[in-house]
Design a protein around this nucleic acid. Structure first.
Lengths: 207, 207
DNA sequence: CACGAAATTGGAACGTGTTTCTATCATGCG
DNA sequence: CGCATGATAGAAACACGTTCCAATTTCGTG
């Protein structure tokens, strides 16, 4: 047997498993997901539509991603992993931890706000996820934490010297960021309020 | 005409509108919701089941609560409003703001953890809510903020002297609390981790 | 009380996530 | 090459949230 069951690694950002045809299908599925999400948000990401656009059968889609939520969380995970890769590779401008963290968060937030429907789809999925998606959620959380701690230190972090307290702080910031994002996605707060709330929180926690 | 359209106030915790028969139906619906949620969580709160248990027609249920999410957010709102009423009526023990806030949060958290399925149902609904439920969500947020600011000051708060910064702090704490709760509900973190995370956050923000 | 408006009922029907099944296809192995 | 095994296609079927409708009941008002 091929041993490349996509189910076992679908949640993690594992683009290296499976045959090449399988990698390709997985990519087509995620691409279709992005496109549909970008156009119509969470509701537009309909499993039949994803399957059709990715040119796979519905059953195949479900073999790769066992639910709509898994699919969207995997997409979010991929985006975060890419963002973390980009951001952690370079120096973060700013004279203090707070400034640097805010720089990164605002950059991330602006990026997501540039694609409101996509952001809505990914965020709602993340928030709605239950324990069966724990792995994917954890992966997203790690990327978030990594982005924040890296920004706290500034340079291409040597990853050492990051204390437990740093991580705790990063998690708190991540929580607030997520809540703010949800508030924005659901139309409860404007982009400005979102930014202001983040700024308040970061300056409270990092001082 | 009766002018008592339940739709307009379903989201808010408005138990005083409508005829007595309508109040009674609303109560039966929410009671049925609690019971089903307590037994089986989010998935068990099925609209047909709620209608049957509450002895109303499905269409009537939808007249009172335009969606499952509205229904569950209204239930959450009611719980929070009651908790706020209880907590804000009495003195909060603790020598510092942080201690008092932690006392209240842990109390709340313990209460919710005593009914895991119910908490799961209400929390997931809250997180999944979109802008159409904005009013209900706002109401829940206000109750949360009120609980936290009250705890920061200790006594039965005269509500004055609460500064904008206090409110900002309370909101940050509320965000973290919610995230922690979601983490616990989805099985990503244990009750202890939840408590520890909250403690970290509160001590970071209130110092 | 009698009337009309609004609310409620009971049930059918629709959309979308999810499951299931059979036939066909692809792949690795002797 | 031919076979065995797993992957995929295609399509039907099911579950539950939601909508819709006609008939009936409730309720306020003249």
């Amino acid at each position: 047997m091929t041993t490349a069951d996509p189910l076992t690694d679908a949640a993690a950002g594992a683009p290296d498993n499976g045959s090449s045809a399988q990698r390709d299908r997985r990519k087509r599925i995620l691409d279709a997901t992005y496109e549909l999400a970008k156009e119509g948000g969470f509701d537009a990401v309909q499993m039949r539509a994803v399957a059709e656009k990715a040119e796979v059968a519905l059953g195949t889609l479900y073999r790769y991603f066992p639910s709509k939520i898994h699919l969207l969380v995997a997409a979010l995970d991929q985006q975060f992993a890419e963002a973390a890769l980009r951001l952690n590779a370079r120096d973060i401008p700013g004279d203090s931890s707070a400034d640097r963290v805010l720089y990164v968060l605002k950059r991330l937030t602006r990026g997501m706000q540039g694609d409101p429907k996509l952001t809505e789809a990914l965020t709602r999925a993340f928030m709605f996820a239950d324990s069966s998606v724990a792995e994917g959620i954890h992966s997203v959380g790690m990327a978030m934490t990594s982005i924040v701690t890296h920004a706290m230190y500034g340079g291409p972090s040597s990853a050492e010297s990051v204390t437990d307290e740093d991580i705790a702080i990063a998690r708190v910031i991540g929580d607030v960021w997520l809540s703010a994002l949800v508030g924005w996605v659901t139309g409860r707060s404007t982009a400005e309020q979102t930014a202001a709330h983040m700024e308040t929180a970061v300056r409270l926690v990092l001082r």
